[in-house]
């Protein structure tokens, strides 16, 4: 009975546009759904460093290399914001990292595709970060305070990620025939996986209705995807590249760019672990964790030494 009243009050607060803070009463389901979403988001930021890290040493100029390094460092920072946002819900970061390293937790499918050429770095910044910004701009307004604030910070930084990628795309699209071919090929490969980033159609998205009721999400997967397509069609035109969809056409009545059907078989196959890089990514993450252990041990040893020194002089 008490819970029914609390639930009513909770939903009324959300209806009024109030934010829910860590110590506030919340339904268990809200808590578990948020932990799932925020930790998947955090894992995605961390895995997201891998496809791009692949190109840092081979960037074509110092300018491009500095930008890419800064971008990859930002992704690590975003992962850390998000793990801490999840921790406010009563889980330990180590639990989440454990689920990630064991393969139990999911992360965004997009990072299971390979970065075959330098042009992929342009396409990722433009399309993948572009899609992420559309999603995170919404999440910055979500009902859970710490997650909303983390996304606000992420959005501020992510705009540079998109622009540096878009600049690579535009530059290559103005280049020699081989460069134009290379960038078009990268756009062709990243376009459809970018559309898949918004998740299944609303009718096949079991969590969506509940998440929208509690304003964890404010727009549906299909609405966000449409917003991204509309923005990107114009940017493709300005850059001088084409999008690989013969069904793409403008509908003056809805003011939307309609697009062809997404290959959902591919989407589910990658979710189930059969994407081109799923195993590589997991192997790289585990190796990084093991090879980074000495850094954590050294930090612990240093802290212990400082404490001992302070105790002695006291």
């Amino acid at each position: 009975m008490e819970d029914a009243n609390k639930l009513k009050e909770f939903e009324a607060r959300i209806e009024r546009g109030e934010k829910i803070e860590p110590k506030d009463w919340m339904p268990e389901r809200y808590r578990t759904q948020l932990i799932r979403m925020i930790s998947q988001h955090a894992h995605s930021e961390i895995v997201g460093m891998l496809p791009e890290g692949n190109w840092i040493t081979r960037a074509p100029s110092l300018r491009r290399k500095m930008s890419l390094l800064a971008k990859v460092q930002d992704e690590a920072g975003h992962g850390l914001y998000l793990y801490c946002a999840a921790e406010t819900l009563g889980v330990d970061r180590s639990e989440l990292v454990g689920e990630f390293l064991s393969g139990k937790a999911k992360y965004s499918n997009i990072f299971n595709y390979p970065t075959l050429t330098w042009a992929d770095i342009g396409a990722i910044g433009w399309l993948v970060d572009g899609a992420a910004i559309v999603n995170q701009t919404m999440l910055a307004k979500c009902s859970y305070g710490p997650y909303s604030r983390a996304n606000l910070r992420i959005c501020k930084e992510e705009t540079f990620h998109k622009v540096q990628g878009y600049e690579i795309v535009c530059t290559m699209a103005q280049g020699r025939p081989a460069q134009r071919k290379m960038i078009q090929d990268a756009v062709n490969r990243w376009w459809w996986p970018s559309l898949m980033m918004f998740g299944p159609h609303d009718k096949n998205s079991p969590n969506s209705a509940e998440l929208m009721k509690w304003k964890v999400k404010l727009f549906s997967n299909d609405d966000l995807r449409q917003r991204f397509v509309n923005l990107t069609v114009r940017q493709a035109r300005a850059a001088g590249v084409t999008l690989p969809d013969p069904d793409l056409k403008y509908n003056p009545e809805t003011d939307n760019w309609e697009f062809g059907e997404i290959n959902w078989d591919e989407f589910w196959s990658v979710v189930r672990g059969n994407g081109p890089c799923n195993r590589d990514r997991m192997r790289a993450r585990r190796r990084a964790h093991v090879e980074g252990a000495w850094v954590r041990e050294a930090a612990d040893a240093y802290a212990a030494k400082q404490r001992a020194k302070a105790a002695k002089s006291a």
Binding site: S94, G98, L101, M282, R283, R286, A293, R296, E297
Partner: peptide, 11 residues
């Protein structure tokens, strides 16, 4: 694939 490491040391 390497074995799943112990994540407790991140805490």
């Amino acid at each position: 694939m390497p074995e799943c490491p112990n994540p407790k040391d991140t805490q």
